[in-house]
Design a protein around this nucleic acid. Structure first.
Length: 142
DNA sequence: GCCAACGTTGGC
DNA sequence: GCCAACGTTGGC
């Protein structure tokens, strides 16, 4: 499956992920986001979106674990996944560009701006890759 | 900095 | 169980 994870670059950016090489995506404290996060499987590809100052999809990451209990959560029932960076988009895909594309205008990203983890349709994923100047075939094997 | 959207909390 | 008040997030 394909996903989009949202992050505030002031808190944790794509560059931080690249520098770390691998990270635990934790701290999700929203039920709807958690329900999606629980469905993430190893090998799933993830668009990384910068909110706030950037407002653009900046890179593609890959899940390398399935959901496990969030180590930063005091009570149980919250989950995290481990992800690694795959490729930075040569051109970032801005929120404005996504909004103005009729194929993408009904993404949860647009409709429900506060949701931080969301599934992405295959066609939308490929379209965003294309807009970002990424050759999908270079890292997806069918 | 403001506002809209949404979630959470607490009084009733 | 409802709803007002408040907090947080994110776009503008």
């Amino acid at each position: 499956m394909f996903w989009l994870f949202k992050t505030d670059p002031e808190t944790y950016s794509w560059d931080d992920l690249v520098k770390d090489g691998k990270t635990i995506w934790d701290g999700v404290r929203n039920f709807q986001a958690r329900n999606y996060l629980e469905k993430v499987a190893p090998g799933d590809l993830i668009l990384i979106y910068h909110s706030q100052s950037d407002k653009a999809v900046v890179g593609i990451a890959k899940a390398v674990s399935s959901a496990f209990p969030d180590p930063t959560a005091e009570s149980s029932n919250w989950v995290a996944v481990e992800i690694v960076p795959v490729v930075a988009l040569p051109q970032k895909v801005t929120l404005q560009a996504i909004k103005s594309n009729s194929e993408l205008a009904n993404l949860p990203l647009i409709r429900q701006s506060r949701l931080s983890i969301m599934p992405i349709e295959d066609s939308a994923f490929y379209r965003i890759c294309e807009m970002g100047g990424v050759d999908v075939k270079s890292f997806i094997r069918k």
